[in-house]
């Protein structure tokens, strides 16, 4: 059976066009998402992980555009669909949950309006039916008094409740894939945990595949089946979560894992990756991570390819050996 989503050599640029190349926010990225599985797409801010998510949804804002590559969803290349064909997939078969629930819902429209229109965008049902489905969806994500809450405005909900509403909207059409772009970053820690559990439960029940975009390795380890690590627009490492997190091959992944606070014992100074993430306008030649990497050699002046290692991929000439971590 083919993968649900297979992104091949995706390049997303800002600006450019007509032969000239723009800023490459996503550079030659390939990954697969299997049905019912959760992929954790990890990276720092500016690494291109969110842009990757928006590329799949074809929701890039100008001047962003998909310059090349394929986004095969259930056998169809999304990059080649017409706008109307893409619209029919958005929200119906691929849904998205955004980072900041305070900004995701339209402040001047009721929850009812915003949910009913989402139902009716894809299914030709009466308003009453759509309203019932909206109410049931709210109940499903654990919102008390869904009937009353439907007529509320977004600002009458707390952040956590709003994100539940957003998740309810995403689940309205039982999509095959949900792209969750750091959906818990803007929430309190206790609420984060609730939302993650709820999300996990609901997607497992419906067999929905998820791309969970985050910078938080703890969430990935708890939630994801597979992981893909991005750095400066490129994929640097991917594979099953269990093996990647316990045995990182790329020095960047290794550095990320080492710098998670909970893994350090008290009194032992936190490990950190030296230097700063370069801006995509001024990347070093060759491997983008070269300037911050203590394993770099002259060989790294050439961009390393993705080396397959069993079920994993690593973009590094000098991968970390397990004994050294």
């Amino acid at each position: 059976m083919t993968s649900l989503l297979s992104v091949n050599n995706l390049v997303t640029e800002f600006g450019g066009g007509k032969g000239a190349s723009g800023l490459r926010a996503v550079n030659d990225v390939s990954f697969k998402v299997e049905r019912g599985r959760v992929l954790g797409l990890v990276g720092e801010s500016g690494s291109g992980k969110s842009v990757t998510g928006f590329s799949v949804m074809r929701l890039l804002e100008r001047p962003g555009r998909i310059a090349s590559g394929q986004i095969i969803f259930d056998g169809v290349d999304l990059a080649r669909l017409s706008n109307e064909e893409m619209r029919q997939i958005r929200g119906k078969r691929i849904a998205m949950v955004f980072q900041d629930p305070m900004m995701t819902l339209n402040p001047v429209l009721t929850i009812e309006t915003q949910m009913v229109e989402a139902v009716r965008a894809h299914d030709q049902v009466s308003k009453t039916t759509a309203r019932q489905r909206a109410r049931d969806a709210l109940g499903l994500v654990g919102i008390p008094n869904p009937e009353e809450r439907l007529s509320s405005y977004p600002h009458q909900f707390s952040g956590g409740m709003r994100q539940r509403v957003v998740i309810a909207i995403a689940l309205l059409h039982k999509p095959e894939l949900i792209i969750a772009d750091e959906p818990t970053t803007a929430l309190d820690v206790t609420i984060q945990s609730q939302i993650i559990s709820e999300f996990q439960k609901l997607t497992e029940e419906s067999g929905t595949a998820v791309i969970w975009i985050t910078h938080d390795l703890a969430i990935v380890s708890r939630l994801a089946d597979d992981i893909a690590v991005m750095y400066a627009g490129r994929l640097v490492e991917s594979g099953p979560v269990s093996s990647v997190l316990t045995d990182p091959k790329h020095p960047y992944t290794a550095g990320l894992i080492a710098s998670v606070p909970s893994r350090n014992r008290r009194g032992v100074p936190l490990r950190q990756i030296p230097g700063m993430t370069p801006a995509i306008t001024m990347l070093p030649r060759g491997c983008s991570f070269r300037t911050r990497c203590d394993r770099a050699t002259d060989e790294c002046l050439v961009i390393p390819p993705l080396f397959p290692q069993q079920e994993r991929f690593v973009r590094c000439f000098h991968p970390v050996m397990k004994a050294m971590t």
Binding site: M57, L59, E61, R87, Q88, I89, R90, G91, K92, A95, M96, F98, D100, M103, T104, L105, N106, P107, V108, L109, T113, Q114, E117, A118, A121, H122, V166, I169
Partner: peptide, 23 residues
């Protein structure tokens, strides 16, 4: 973001302009 989210819901452009933008 709420306009982007409205697109992510698969709303038609006409409705996004007539309801989400105009309101």
């Amino acid at each position: 973001d709420y306009i982007k989210f409205a697109r992510a819901k698969g709303l038609r452009e006409r409705r996004i302009i007539a309801v989400h933008v105009l309101k």
